[in-house]
């Protein structure tokens, strides 16, 4: 059951990130999606990959995107 919830979170937040008008929200939603994938990796018996994904995908990448958004512009358009 948990897997299906994680998959729905993953795909849902990916789609939400892409239709968001506010790019900062999009960055945070990217982190949600990557975090859900990290949980899935744990369920797929890969704890080492899950740790890396949780750090890189759920924290570092959203921070990079948020920094880029801060240096450029926040709204899409």
């Amino acid at each position: 059951m948990l897997e299906f919830i994680l998959m729905i979170i993953m795909v849902g937040s990916a789609i939400l990130a892409l239709i968001q008008k506010d790019l900062l929200k999009a960055a945070i939603l990217t982190g949600f999606s990557a975090g859900a994938i990290a949980f899935l990796f744990q369920l797929l018996l890969a704890p080492d990959v899950a740790l890396t994904q949780a750090i890189v995908g759920a924290v570092i990448v959203p921070v990079f995107i948020a920094l880029a958004v801060k240096k450029t512009q926040r709204s899409d358009g």
């Binding site: 892409l18 790019l23 999009a26 990217t30 990448v61 995107i65 958004v69 450029t72």
Partner: peptide, 11 residues
């Protein structure tokens, strides 16, 4: 939007 393009690439 280029930032969204990059987010898509990460997906």
């Amino acid at each position: 939007n280029i930032i969204k393009k990059i987010i898509g690439i990460s997906f």
